[in-house]
């Protein structure tokens, strides 16, 4: 009787010894979380990437109250329209329109009525495919178009920017590097609080 019980216990013990490897082997046979893991890896990868440049430096900074102490006039008022810049009233200055998107930058220069005279984009400039949507391409385009505008005799311009993208800041900088005198910068991004239904989200 004693021997039988001891044998049984030994057997059970042996069984319990054998069991763990089987239990360990089980999860690898059932594929439950492989796809989830892939999505997680993707998320991690995207989070570790550096933030994409959208030309919005200074968006998150908080030192807006310092403006009050400054004497300089940063915002236009009713008299600005008739104010003279280089001998031309503000509302008769030529306009430089910059249209920025993540993949391209299009710059056009028009007279004060809005009739376009020059147009140039990163694609025309010779940058193709993904290189179009870089800040370097935008700057090069801006430099060439500003040289052409100076040839026309337009040295003082107002700038109107539309959209977000890597070319937003560098295009404005390029205009100045090309020899144009920028009087004002206007944001003309179309933003609606009740837009028609946009396209569906990209699957990442």
């Amino acid at each position: 009787m004693l021997i039988k019980t001891t044998l049984l216990t030994v057997l059970q013990h042996a069984k319990s010894l054998v069991r763990p490897p089987i239990a360990l082997a089980l999860p690898s046979k059932i594929h439950t979380s492989a796809s989830l893991k892939k999505a997680e890896d993707r998320k991690e990868m995207l989070a570790s990437l550096p933030a994409k440049d959208e030309g919005t430096t200074g968006e998150k900074s908080v030192d807006i109250d310092t403006l009050i102490n400054r004497k300089a006039k940063f915002f236009p008022d009713a008299d600005t329209a008739s104010q003279l810049f280089n001998g031309i009233p503000f509302n008769e200055l030529p306009i430089c329109n910059i249209r920025v998107s993540p993949n391209n930058t299009i710059i056009s220069v028009s007279d004060y009525k809005g009739v376009p005279r020059l147009i140039r984009s990163c694609g025309i400039e010779g940058f193709k495919n993904t290189r179009k949507g870089t800040n370097i391409a935008a700057q090069a385009t801006a430099v060439t178009i500003s040289a052409k505008a100076v040839e026309l005799g337009w040295k003082t311009v107002r700038v109107k920017v539309q959209g977000l993208g890597p070319g937003r800041m560098s295009a404005i900088k390029g205009l100045q590097m090309g020899g144009l005198n920028i009087v004002s910068i206007t944001d003309n991004t179309p933003v609606s609080w009740n837009p028609p239904r946009p396209r569906k989200q990209r699957s990442l």
Partner: peptide, 23 residues
């Protein structure tokens, strides 16, 4: 949504515009 450029300092004007629009 307009900022006047002071002393040809385009970058400062840009940053101010971005800050206001971000806020």
């Amino acid at each position: 949504r307009t900022v006047m450029v002071q002393n040809n300092n385009v970058e400062e004007a840009c940053r101010l515009l971005n800050r206001v629009l971000g806020k």
